[in-house]
Nucleic acid binder design. Structure first.
Lengths: 111, 111
DNA sequence: CAAACATGTGAGGTTTCCTAACATGGTTTT
DNA sequence: AAAACCATGTTAGGAAACCTCACATGTTTG
């Protein structure tokens, strides 16, 4: 229904390409996964698959590490940011629910 | 300067993923390349790399073939379409040149 | 009917990816 | 300071993914 999530989030890039795209070593990329900073999907055979969003995230992570931030700290930041995001999403959804209850169409024209 | 070409056109997808995304066989994908309908890049080691745009094009090609159109015919269509596109691009660029000559700023504020 | 088309399949070989382990030079922590 | 942890490199052995080439086949098309 909402938000046909597209190119940016599709997990279709193998680790070698990610290496080329980011300039990181495969070792680093896998290590950041081990530290739960990044979550590739897997092919049936077990190969990692990343999205462009993942690639961008990896670059951000690498920058922070270069600034002396530890993976552990980065992870906490990310959890905090994500929690806030979830709260915001929920709030938005509840407001939308209210609007639908008041004005929403039943069997309305589905654009 | 113009049009930071992004996700959709970056060649980062290996043939196995393209197979999964399109439902075509690798044989078909390679054959359409042989018939000059699609142009993947190559990794240093020789592996093919496709873009999302390529994936969409492959689906279109497959549909036409399913409708009985031959690769040879599809190629002609594509060349025709591309030629028109080039003409349009050129025209647009010339008009833009005229505008710049008349109103364009030298050393103007760069957005 | 001969040639071309579109696709499957198999062989043999190279590239890419996987995990696991050990090495190392910096930082903390005790 | 010794022990522990951090981030990364490197190596080994093995499996998955990819490559080209060739042959087979059923289906158009000239």
């Amino acid at each position: 229904m909402a938000n046909d999530f597209s190119y940016k989030d599709k997990k279709v890039i193998t680790i070698g390409i990610v290496r080329d795209l980011t300039g990181l070593s495969e070792r680093q990329i896998r290590y950041y996964e081990e530290r739960k900073l990044i979550f590739p999907e897997r092919s049936s055979g077990g190969s990692r698959k990343y999205s462009f969003a993942d690639v961008e995230l990896l670059v951000e992570i690498a920058n922070k590490i270069e600034d002396g931030v530890q993976t552990h700290e980065i992870r906490k930041e990310m959890l905090r940011a994500q929690k806030k995001q979830n709260q915001d999403d929920l709030r938005r959804k509840m407001i939308q629910g209210q609007l639908n209850a008041q004005f929403g169409l039943r069997k309305g024209p589905s654009s």
